[in-house]
Design a protein around this nucleic acid. Sequence first.
DNA 1: CACTCTAACTTGCCATTGACAAGATGACAC
DNA 2: GTGTCATCTTGTCAATGGCAAGTTAGAGTG
Lengths: 190, 190
Amino acid sequence: MSERRTYHHGDLRRTLLAAAVTAIDESGPAALSLRDLARRAGVSHAAPAHHFGDKSGLLTALATEGFELLGAALADARERTGDLLEVGVAYVRFAVDHRAHFEVMFRPDLYDADDPALRAARDRSGEGLSLGVATLPADRVGGDALPAQIAAWSIVHGFATLWLGGALPPEVGTDPETAVRAMARFLFST
Amino acid sequence: MSERRTYHHGDLRRTLLAAAVTAIDESGPAALSLRDLARRAGVSHAAPAHHFGDKSGLLTALATEGFELLGAALADARERTGDLLEVGVAYVRFAVDHRAHFEVMFRPDLYDADDPALRAARDRSGEGLSLGVATLPADRVGGDALPAQIAAWSIVHGFATLWLGGALPPEVGTDPETAVRAMARFLFST
DNA sequence: CACTCTAACTTGCCATTGACAAGATGACAC
DNA sequence: GTGTCATCTTGTCAATGGCAAGTTAGAGTG
């Protein structure tokens, strides 16, 4: 980043995506500036355009990367534990650990939601959760699995969003995983 | 808006907030431009600054208005029905019917989250949900009410966010209220 | 009614940004 | 060694947010 000897950067695309993550972590996706990313990467102000076309192109790439990471995290949790609760915990953990990705992924007005690569990654990550719901006993889910899927997704997504937004009261504590498990204990205690 | 005879607009503050809602409904909060709002209101490009200071000031006012509307909607549902489910439905309905407000309210990087008026409105609207949870029978909630509150909030907030983001599969249908009720039936059927 | 005071709004300006066009560089194939 | 093309740069333009200084009208005061 600091000292570049060659005219060609060599790995600018990934460098820019990493810089975007840092910048968004610092000040949110609204304040993101392509020129700032270029400065962070030590390249000219127009270099990002070559790799991503425009700002929404860069965010499309970032969201795609995010959906791929999320899909992998959910699949891993399911294969390791076979337990829907653990898949849910992994969802929240992903949101907290990859805040910048997560904040872009669910803001389709920032990127091109019709991009084929993005759609594919998004669909794959969606499978992660529905396969997780499939680990529930059939009599628990009932005839139609859809409400169970929507419920599971809403719970973890809502919690993650509220947590990231700082909207939850301080009594919830500082560890999201603990709070998610307490919530699950309440919901499925009956 | 169209024909202004007097030098003073007379109701510019509210006009600008209404224009902001329209603009955000059209293209999301990221694309919001103060100068565009000024054009919509038929005033000069610097007029908004007089009422709101800067962009984040305008969004602070919009978020405050949103929290007040949400608080009123939740209180109304609770007083009318005394049923937590109906409070939850009102939450989702608010998000769908006041999309622009909702999208700003939970994006604190866009506004000044420490503004006193905003904090007051936010706390009042938060009460709406916790009082709703208080309508549940005590043995259902258990010793600590916090997990129940977080759960209720996460469910409706997550559903609303996913719905607005267009992330839910098309099989969910076109009426959010129906989907919320189906989800609740699944969660509390046991 | 005349006068003043001030909130409401305007005009003009500057730095920054996203986007585009045209040019410079160098890695790689042949 | 030569050409070719992706990669990156320089230069430019319109639009934006924000600030400073000026203008207007309306409300209050005598």
